[in-house]
């Protein structure tokens, strides 16, 4: 009986503590980091010269190499808390991976549906997650779970011009720019951070900047130019 009492007390204490922590979290002051990434390098990705072809290659979509990923280099406490198993999708459409840049949190399962009328063969040789889905036809989809943070470069074995990037983060403080290069990173707890920009055209060190979210919470603007 004593044991039962002890367990009951412990359980109640744990529940009360958890509730207090949730309340504390909900009261946490946060701010939003926003801005624009101006990418001024070439935005085209051409096919290899198809010298051996009997005619022009069928038109295909081109990836938007101006998409950037903005993320906090150091993440606030709680950013690594496990949540439900997230899911994302990288489509194969008109001989192009859509989206071309996909940032995800570790543990995400990414679906690779083939929405073209031809075979695709999605693979990656990246250290973070090497995989090879083989050839599969239109209407079919295969999935890969990404558990380890890193950059995963994705290719099609059949169409050499097809490539994409999956950026796997250990925390959830990241976002991708929109068509105009704008981004918004909401709910960042007050504190000092290093904000970093990843873009595939950047060679060398990634652009980064020290950012501070005030104790009372506020929005912070941070623009970058990538040449």
């Amino acid at each position: 009986m004593k044991l039962m009492h002890a367990l009951t007390i412990l359980t109640c204490a744990a529940l009360l503590l958890g509730s207090a922590q949730r309340e504390q979290r909900s009261r946490t002051v946060t701010g939003t980091i926003r801005g624009r990434i101006d990418v001024r390098t070439s935005g085209t990705t051409e096919l290899r010269p198809d010298v051996a072809a009997l005619g022009m290659h069928a038109a295909h979509d081109r990836p938007d190499r101006r998409r950037s990923v903005v993320y906090l280099e150091t993440a606030p406490r709680g950013a690594f808390d496990p949540s439900e198993e997230p899911r994302a999708s990288m489509d194969q459409l008109n001989e192009n991976f859509v989206p071309h840049v996909l940032p995800i949190i570790a543990g995400t399962t990414v679906d690779f549906p083939n929405d073209d009328a031809t075979y695709h063969s999605v693979f990656s040789l990246s250290k973070a997650k090497p995989f090879n889905l083989g050839r599969y036809a239109a209407g079919r989809s295969k999935s890969v779970r990404f558990d380890q943070p890193g950059i995963v470069r994705v290719f099609c074995d059949i169409h050499s011009h097809m490539n994409a990037f999956i950026l796997v983060f250990a925390h959830r403080y990241f976002t991708v720019t929109d068509d105009d290069g704008r981004y918004r990173l909401p709910n960042v707890p007050a504190g000092s951070y290093t904000l970093t920009v990843w873009n595939e055209t950047v060679r060398g060190d990634a652009p980064r900047r020290a950012i501070a979210i005030a104790a009372e919470g506020a929005d912070v603007d941070a623009d970058f130019t990538i040449r």
């Binding site: 570790a106 943070p149 950059i151 060398g204």
Partner: peptide, 8 residues
């Protein structure tokens, strides 16, 4: 995570 991002 962001050795990840060795960012290259």
């Amino acid at each position: 995570s962001l050795a990840l991002m060795g960012t290259r």
